[in-house]
Design a protein around this nucleic acid. Structure first.
Length: 290
DNA sequence: GTATGTACCTGTTTGC
DNA sequence: TGCAAACAGGTACATA
């Protein structure tokens, strides 16, 4: 699933392979891919045909291309299964059921937005300060130069929600998804439902450092597997299998204590944790403050 | 304003 | 073998 490290890999690929090119007339094969466009497909076609990207940017899991001589930006979210790929123009004659939107480019290649589960989208948007309007509500991610860990920690500690829900909300810190949230909580020996406002500032600071370290390592892994012919999210990245400690490891022994990892329902998805290392907190009026 | 639950979606896996 | 149900999960929106 594309979380921040996978999106960053895509951004780097777009910067290398698409920025500096001219994109011709855009084609939309699936209206759902542009569902966030208020004016529908026609508006998207009108604003995103014949554009020239000058930079690829990212905040959290949101991507956008800045365009030459235009106030418009091309914003994208990969959702669960979105991909950007650069393919040869001749490949477009081959049927592809997951090809949603594509542009021919001036070097004989084409930029293709593919998406199997159709949770992803693209949007012709405008800027709202540093970021497009569509990403204005998203918090800075830990790799943003203006990310303020102290302020984020204070914000987190004002929430009564469970710490995993806070990590996934994208309004405290962005870029963290289910996989990296589970990994970071395991490393910090925190239960996913530990109330955020019952954590000490040092524990929150530690959690932010750990989740940043995990994503930094994942970015490095994504970079090494990058194929110059594509700008793609590779959902089968070997990095996951090698490095994940709890996600997808139900019933396997915890690397720290040996107790079998458990998988539990969490807000319509799964949480993986060690039942010994990550015990459910006992709530008392005195607070917990592990 | 904050917290929580649910719909959206489709390929794959699992169970019968 | 074939069908149906469960599952994966990020975000927007509805509801409390």
């Amino acid at each position: 699933m594309p979380e921040l490290p996978e999106v960053e890999t895509v951004r780097v690929g777009l910067q290398r392979r698409v920025v500096g090119r001219h994109l011709g007339g855009v084609q939309v094969a699936h209206e759902r891919a542009v569902r966030r466009q208020a004016g529908g497909v026609d508006e998207f076609l009108g604003r995103m045909s014949h554009v020239s990207p000058i930079a690829a940017q990212r905040r959290g899991k949101y991507l956008w291309l800045e365009l030459a001589d235009s106030d418009d930006v091309l914003v994208a979210h990969l959702g669960m299964s979105g991909q950007f790929r650069v393919v040869d123009n001749s490949d477009l004659v081959e049927p592809d059921p997951h090809r949603r939107v594509w542009w021919p480019m001036d070097d004989g290649s084409a930029l293709v937005f593919r998406d199997q589960r159709t949770f992803g989208w693209v949007l012709a948007d405008e800027r709202a300060g540093d970021v497009p309007t569509a990403a204005a509500h998203i918090a800075r991610d830990p790799f943003d130069p203006l990310f303020d860990a102290g302020e984020v920690s204070r914000h987190i500690r004002r929430s009564r929600s469970g710490i995993k829900r806070v990590l996934l909300a994208q309004t405290f810190v962005s870029g963290v998804g289910n996989i990296y949230a589970d990994e970071a909580l395991w490393r910090c020996q925190l239960h996913p439902e530990h109330p955020a406002n019952r954590l000490s500032s040092s524990r929150v600071a530690e959690l932010l450092e750990v989740v940043t370290d995990i994503m930094r390592a994942a970015i490095a892994a994504g970079g090494t597997s990058f194929d110059p012919l594509y700008v793609a999210v590779n959902g089968d990245s070997g990095w996951f299998d090698r490095s994940l400690s709890v996600y997808g490891r139900e019933s396997e022994p915890c690397a720290r204590c040996g107790r079998p990892i458990v998988r539990e329902q969490f807000a319509n998805r799964s949480s993986h944790r060690c039942p010994k290392c990550q015990r459910r907190p006992r709530v008392s009026t005195a607070g917990i403050h592990r």
